[in-house]
Design a protein around this nucleic acid. Structure first.
Lengths: 109, 109
DNA sequence: GCAATCGTCAACCGCGAGGTTGAATATGCA
DNA sequence: TGCATATTCAACCTCGCGGTTGACGATTGC
């Protein structure tokens, strides 16, 4: 259980990986398309996707030549519950959050 | 903003640091007392506390010879809000969470 | 003033994370 | 069959993390 929290928090600690998750929030994507906005090699993105996958945050499914990446938001639940024990989370402000996500995307490289 | 998320998630990725936070959830503690249950040097704990402090998750205040560590739960808010965008967080199950925390404490070394 | 206590600093070590490049693998298409 | 496309693998490099130990600085109490 501790291991799983380790993996999830460690995966979320990298801004590239958070940006990838935000992209996948909108739609499933092929690896090549995930990599496109980033200023790094495809192999590097492939490794990031492996980290996310091992943390359970995404799944990958091959369809023909293409591997489709899909968000698995359930994996965040345990970590989110853990954090909420600290109790001071204000009610969700959706507008603030959307600005947030956009900035994540913009800064994602 | 990205930097702050980096720092918070990275700080939370270490089980020793999560155990420290859980201890501080109950009460403020001196550095020496924080270190006591762990099988590592005081210097190592001191570094962990510095990481938590730089992430804003705790504050440290010197009173005499003793430095008191205090949880700053507000720092988790940004990260928690980020996670909640992924939407699948079930309603908080407090019993499950308490079992969770106890296990964190038990496994903390 | 001096010794003891509390905590950090500095130097070091080993290891894994995050990146690169180039070759290998899997699949689709002509 | 053979070439192009999609993705991973393998080897390598660098850097920072998490730990150690020993010296140092701050504070208290005798």
């Amino acid at each position: 259980m501790t291991d799983r929290l380790d993996a999830v928090f460690a995966a979320l600690a990298d801004p590239t990986r958070r940006a990838i998750l935000a992209m996948l929030l909108e739609d499933d994507m092929a690896v090549t398309d995930v990599a496109e906005p980033f200023a790094m090699s495809l192999a590097a993105i492939s490794k990031h996707l492996a980290v996310l996958s091992e943390a359970g945050l995404i799944s990958r499914e091959r369809r023909g030549r293409v591997i489709w990446c899909k968000l698995e938001p359930e994996a965040m639940r345990e970590a989110s519950v853990w954090m909420r024990a600290f109790g001071q989370v204000d009610p969700l402000d959706l507008d603030a959050f959307e600005r947030f996500l956009e900035q994540e995307l913009a800064e994602g490289d």
